[in-house]
């Protein structure tokens, strides 16, 4: 089968994305570095110690952004899943491949930093309460997605299966969010809610906010970079395949 002009048409959208990524990337990267430097220094050295936890409260400034990013990246995977299943958006499948490992890293870091906080504070590395368990489930959903999307020789089949997994797994997100309200858990309830005043001193809230923005910008920059690279790689592959076909045609002629 010869590549048709249709193929170029398919790349119109990724082309647009590449232009967008080129404009946004310097801003995302610069913003991430500035916010993270400020946030980490503030969180580690300037923010006050908690009256009970002492300095161990500083783990929160990396733990909470990781939890937020693990959930948001999974939401991103689910949106990619809908775009892929319903609209067959070519960019969505590439994005799902690239978002998965980043989200899995965030989920793993959330679990590890939480464990590092729990050992000195609760007195245990791990308990099987609803919040911790549902977060672990999210990590395994990421691992399943990463494996599934690469499991088939024919990429389209793996992408379809992974999109379905991403959509089914989205049910875990509200469970994580509300687990601390619905059930008795060892994990504390959320300090920051949409409805009430935060039960946290402003002197701790500011570094937390800045760290969260910094890590979010950083993850956005990483995903944009990975996706741009993936588009370039797939274009190079397409050109190689086409040149091989051309050669075969010219040999046949």
């Amino acid at each position: 089968m010869r590549p048709t002009p249709n193929l170029l048409h398919r790349y119109a959208n990724p082309g647009q994305f590449l232009r967008l990524a080129r404009t946004l990337l310097p801003w995302l990267t610069g913003g991430a570095i500035v916010f993270l430097v400020v946030g980490v220094i503030w969180g580690l050295f300037i923010a006050p110690a908690d009256w009970q936890q002492g300095d161990t409260v500083r783990i929160m400034y990396v733990h909470v952004p990781m939890a937020w990013l693990a959930s948001s990246c999974y939401l991103g995977l689910a949106i990619c899943g809908v775009l892929s299943l319903v609209w067959r958006h070519p960019l969505a499948d590439l994005a799902a491949i690239e978002i998965g490992p980043v989200g899995a890293c965030a989920a793993a870091l959330c679990l590890i930093t939480g464990s590092l906080w729990g050992e000195p504070m609760w007195g245990t590395w791990w308990v099987w309460d609803a919040r911790l368990t549902s977060m672990l489930v999210l990590f395994f959903l990421y691992l399943g997605h990463i494996a599934l999307i690469r499991a088939f020789d024919e990429p389209a089949r793996g992408q379809r299966a992974a999109a379905i997994l991403a959509l089914a797994g989205v049910i875990d997100l509200p469970i994580i969010k509300f687990s601390v309200q619905w059930w008795n858990t060892l994990h504390q309830p959320d300090s920051i809610t949409l409805t009430g005043a935060p039960t946290m001193s402003m002197m701790m809230l500011w570094p937390l906010l800045i760290c969260t923005i910094g890590f979010t910008l950083g993850v956005a920059a990483v995903i944009f970079t990975r996706l741009s690279a993936a588009i370039h790689e797939s274009r190079a592959r397409q050109m190689m395949a086409r040149s091989r076909l051309d050669r075969r045609d010219s040999q046949a002629a």
Partner: peptide
């Protein structure tokens, strides 16, 4: 009152997170 300090745990958390990033 006595404040517990656990700098190794804090350092490990920051090193892991920033290193991975």
């Amino acid at each position: 009152m006595h404040l517990p300090n656990h700098w190794p745990y804090i350092a490990a958390s920051y090193a892991l997170t920033l290193g991975c990033s």
